[in-house]
């Protein structure tokens, strides 16, 4: 089994292919591999409850762990209590930890 960390830095408000990136994460999970999503920069904006961005909710419904970079959240006045259910704040060190553990870390 392989492990993947998907880093989403733009979200579907800025990147038309962001939903496809999330869909790929779902397909990886469906084939039995481990996948997590780390939102960073404007990629955290779809994680605000009430956001109408595409892709993220389907990933959450698929049971994929979704994290949001704490500094990116703070910069955008996005509090943990504002996050859509299922998204957890996380430190940037998560990226280093997964990279060091040999996960395939893929930036979008």
């Amino acid at each position: 089994m392989k492990h993947y960390l998907f880093i989403e830095s733009e979200g579907s408000f800025a990147a038309a292919d962001a939903p496809q990136f999330f869909a790929l994460a779902r397909e990886i999970k469906q084939q039995g591999d481990t996948v997590e999503i780390f939102l960073v920069q404007n990629g955290v904006m779809p994680a605000r409850a009430g956001s109408k961005a595409d892709g993220l909710s389907a990933a959450l419904q698929a049971g994929i762990a979704v994290m949001a970079d704490e500094m990116s959240m703070r910069e955008r006045a996005l509090k943990a209590s504002d996050l859509v259910t299922g998204v957890k704040p996380a430190k940037i060190g998560t990226v280093v930890e997964r990279t060091a553990a040999g996960w395939n870390v893929i930036w979008h």
Partner: peptide, 17 residues
């Protein structure tokens, strides 16, 4: 096909996007 990209990726040690 887009739906087979995940399978393709699994054939590689690393994926650099």
């Amino acid at each position: 096909h887009r739906g087979d990209v995940a399978r393709v990726m699994s054939n590689y040690d690393q994926v650099w996007r």
